[in-house]
Design a protein around this nucleic acid. Structure first.
Length: 455
DNA sequence: GCATGATCATGC
DNA sequence: GCATGATCATGC
């Protein structure tokens, strides 16, 4: 570990790295193929700061109480910036961390101040040619720290209730618990259950890091905030808003919020107004950082939810290029929290009932979702898309349907049937080389199961 | 009534 | 023009 570094010296060194490539920083002749995960950090640690690579549990600069992190960001096609990855922090010691309070936790000891060094990731470029562009000595803003503290407690509670093996990164808002280890056999003991749990580390979610990148590096537009300084917790804030509006009908909302039209997404407009947001609720600072997706759900008067719910759609080619482990749907469901706003029909009017914060349990992702994804990949790669052409011209496909999976299925999601993506393998029955855009859907029955207290 | 195909509407 | 949330339409 590095001694004799004070804050000023650390920042000076960090500033000195800006504009340099990893190749330039590295004094040793490290060959490209030796660059692996974590290697960038190691090069910075060992060369720029001249100290030994360590996996010791003190902060990297123990005297100054500063942890060093090297992390990539990327430019998107639409010219916005995003973090390329979550920022992985210390490994969670299930056997000891639960004994602590937040402010004497190992997490806080190690990460209360982080010297972040950002480099621009560019696909296809040699790793030693990637350039460091920005640095920031980061301490958590007070309003974020409240949420991070809640997140830490959520994770600790799972350990205390013997559920360390059920932790998901989507359980929490900003501070996540991501898997860490070579593979799924990297497991550890937990104190209140015999079941071995996946090794996990605290992390700042990709969504949180993306907002930090946008604020610090660029493209930051004024983003709306919903929390006030005196709000104590995210959940409490949301619950206060919900309590205020529970039981109101659509008509009452329209009057209250001066909504004059009744568009398809009326309920969505209503929930944005509830939070006093002009734009979209999911584009607010807090929702973006926590990767929370608001969704409205209509429950019919008979207690049924008629409609299934779409996820972002996929490109056929992308699915073929993925493995399950690095698939976009696994990543999305593993990191996204949903907040369902339930409207139930009573006497011909939809009445706001309340919300449910939800994320998909890891077990379900690794069973039902995996099965669906595998079948989808199989259908695409074999070119067996169309099963039958109906008399009205519509086409029945072999994509996994609702009948065969209790959780999710694949269905069209497009402007119309002419709205297509390229097929990597042409369809055997029709010879088509492109097909109507499809996406993954949550079954309406599964939604009913999630929201059963509202039916 | 359900499963599946198809489409609408908005915002960036 | 496209991504995305939301909903409609219809045949069995």
């Amino acid at each position: 570990m590095a001694r004799n570094y004070d804050e000023i010296k650390i920042i000076r060194l960090a500033e000195g790295l800006i504009g340099k490539t990893f190749g330039e920083i590295n004094n040793y002749a490290v060959k490209t193929d030796e660059y692996g995960k974590g290697t960038f950090g190691h090069i910075i640690e060992s060369d720029a700061y001249d100290y030994d690579i360590n996996a010791i549990s003190e902060p990297d600069f123990a005297d100054a109480g500063i942890e060093l992190k090297v992390t990539p960001y990327k430019m998107n096609k639409n010219n916005t910036l995003s973090a390329k990855e979550r920022l992985v922090l210390n490994i969670i010691n299930y056997m000891t961390e639960y004994k602590n309070e937040f402010y004497n936790s190992h997490f806080w000891y190690k990460n209360k101040k982080i010297q972040i060094i950002w480099y621009l990731y560019e696909a296809g470029r040699k790793k030693e040619d990637l350039t460091i562009t920005h640095q920031l000595l980061y301490s958590f803003p007070e309003e974020d720290l409240k949420i991070i503290k809640d997140d830490w407690e959520t994770i600790i509670n799972k350990i205390k209730t013997g559920k360390a093996h059920e932790i998901s990164e989507a359980d929490t808002m900003y501070l996540g618990a991501c898997t860490k280890g070579a593979n799924s056999s990297s497991v550890r003991k937990q104190p209140f259950s015999e079941i071995m749990a996946m090794q996990r580390a605290f992390c700042l979610k990709t969504s949180y890091m993306t907002q930090l990148v946008r604020k610090h590096i660029g493209n930051y537009k004024d983003i709306e905030h919903i929390l006030n300084k005196n709000d104590n917790s995210f959940i409490q804030f949301i619950n206060n808003v919900i309590d205020k509006y529970k039981g109101m009908t659509q008509r009452e909302f329209m009057k209250l919020f001066n909504i004059e039209t009744t568009p398809k997404q009326l309920n969505k407009m209503i929930i944005c107004r509830m939070f006093g947001v002009n734009g979209d609720l999911d584009k607010t600072d807090e929702f973006l950082k926590a990767n929370i997706k608001p969704r409205t759900v209509r429950v019919e008067s008979n207690g049924r939810i008629k409609e299934s719910m779409p996820f972002p759609y996929f490109k056929f080619i992308d699915i073929l290029n993925e493995t399950w482990k690095n698939s976009s749907i696994r990543e999305t469901l593993g990191t996204t929290k949903y907040i369902f706003f339930v409207f139930k029909k009573k006497k011909n009017e939809y009445v706001f009932q309340g919300i449910k914060l939800w994320n998909m349990p890891v077990k379900v992702i690794e069973s039902n979702v995996k099965t669906m994804w595998e079948k989808t990949k199989d259908v695409i790669s074999s070119g067996n898309i169309v099963k039958k052409i109906n008399s009205d011209g519509s086409r029945l496909t072999n994509f996994p349907g609702m009948r065969e999976n209790d959780v999710c299925h694949v269905r069209p999601h497009a402007i119309n049937s002419e709205d297509t993506y390229d097929l990597p393998v042409k369809d055997k029955l029709t010879g088509l080389t492109k097909y109507t855009k499809q996406c993954f859907w949550l079954n309406n029955k599964y939604l009913e199961d999630i929201l059963k207290e509202y039916l």
